[in-house]
């Protein structure tokens, strides 16, 4: 490519007294407030059109390159082996009434996993954020759980099923009965869960 202007875009960095940087910033501002010294200059308007076109190419550039490239996600499997799920273990809750000399605890992370799995087991429900706190007596767990439901799922039946299953399963895995259960529907997804 030569230095000569090819399409009317001047090679020099001067567009009737404006620099390319000024023009790009003017474009960033949505060409507002209107600058007559730019808008009345053919050189500026040509450069602006070029910058605009360049921006339109830049926007989808990565997605197009991503779509065109062969997909290789093997690194993800490797990385999953390297991250430590234990890093999310959190608090440790001991079980009372275990034989002397024995310690049995369940971690906060494991309990979150349990609650998440219970929610996921209900048709049309995906569990989101799980938070809980033992009540004052230390025997019950108050829970706040965000869920996403698929369109058409009855929220009342799903809530009832959630409560029933967690009341049954939590005491088996944790030194707690279920206290308050605050279920919040954060999102409704359109398609059914069995249509990947």
């Amino acid at each position: 490519m030569t230095d000569a202007p090819v399409s009317g875009v001047p090679a020099a960095d001067d567009f009737d007294g404006h620099t390319l940087e000024e023009l790009a910033e003017y474009l960033d501002r949505g060409r507002y407030p209107v600058d007559p010294s730019i808008e009345s200059s053919p050189a500026c308007r040509i450069a602006l059109a070029g910058l605009q076109r360049l921006r339109e190419i830049a926007g989808p550039l990565l997605q197009q390159e991503a779509d065109a490239a062969a997909r290789d996600d093997r690194w993800i499997d490797e990385v999953l082996g390297r991250i430590s799920l234990e890093s999310r273990a959190g608090r440790r809750f001991p079980f009372p009434d275990v034989p002397v000399g024995t310690e049995a605890v369940v971690t906060e992370g494991a309990l979150r996993g349990l609650v998440r799995a219970i929610g996921d087991s209900i048709p049309g429900v995906l569990t989101g954020r799980v938070r809980f706190e033992p009540d004052e007596s230390g025997t019950r767990l108050d829970l706040a759980v965000d869920v996403t439901v698929f369109y058409g799922t009855s929220i009342q039946s799903a809530s009832a099923a959630f409560r029933e299953r967690i009341a049954l399963l939590l005491p088996r895995h944790a030194p707690f009965a279920v206290g308050a259960l605050d279920l919040r529907v954060r999102d409704v997804l359109e398609r059914g869960p069995e249509q990947p």
């Binding site: 490519m1 202007p5 090819v6 875009v9 390319l20 790009a24 070029g50 910058l51 076109r53 360049l54």
Partner: peptide
């Protein structure tokens, strides 16, 4: 930007 504009031209 200048080089890319030239290219596009």
């Amino acid at each position: 930007r200048k080089k890319l504009l030239d290219t596009m031209g």
